[in-house]
């Protein structure tokens, strides 16, 4: 086998700590999916062009296909697997499910995380504000309309109710 330079890297993903022996050039996207079995993070280009691989680093959206784990040691990484608390969906997840904002669902994890970061800094964004914040995330299925609706709905619900740990049952839990 070829000589590959490997480093031990300590990562904190969704609140869990992990130490991994990794080739230095392996991207965070690959490490999440292949070494940590966190396959909820998707990819559409692996070149920083589509936004599909978005994760949060200290709450801010980053493209995991362009990050090396050594760059973000010790920082808090959130993937789609860390968005729901147990079986309680995040209000954004609930709204996306209810409004049909996920068709094939492939762009959905990245968009949900980017939207989560947006709502945390601006709980009532304008529609154009949402467009601006999500402009780096491509979706080929939805035409974006239902995604905008869902982010707005989630924002409204989060303003009017305690944000976390409360079962979101409005509108059709039984169907989900």
């Amino acid at each position: 086998m070829r000589e590959v330079d490997r480093h031990v890297v300590a990562l904190e993903v969704n609140g869990e700590h992990a130490e991994l022996l990794l080739p230095v050039h392996k991207t965070l996207l690959e490490v999440l999916r292949e070494d940590m079995q966190l396959t909820g993070t998707k990819h559409g280009c692996e070149l920083g062009e589509c936004g599909t691989c978005t994760v949060l680093v200290d709450g801010k959206p980053e493209l995991s296909c362009l990050l090396l784990p050594v760059q973000i040691e010790g920082r808090a990484i959130t993937t789609i697997e860390g968005m729901a608390k147990g079986s309680d969906l995040h209000p954004l997840q609930q709204a996306f499910a209810e409004l049909g904002a996920a068709q094939c669902g492939y762009c959905t994890p990245g968009i949900l995380l980017a939207a989560k970061s947006l709502l945390e800094s601006d709980p009532q964004p304008t529609r154009d504000g949402i467009r601006e914040a999500l402009a780096g995330n491509l979706c080929r299925c939805t035409g974006y309309s239902k995604i905008l609706d869902a982010v707005e709905l989630a924002g409204d619900r989060m303003m009017s109710s305690p944000p976390r740990g409360v079962a979101q049952s409005a509108g059709g839990d039984e169907e989900l």
Binding site: L38, E81, A84, G105
Partner: peptide, 8 residues
């Protein structure tokens, strides 16, 4: 399958 899609 909405939940499986929004939860990854």
């Amino acid at each position: 399958d909405a939940v499986s899609k929004v939860t990854g």
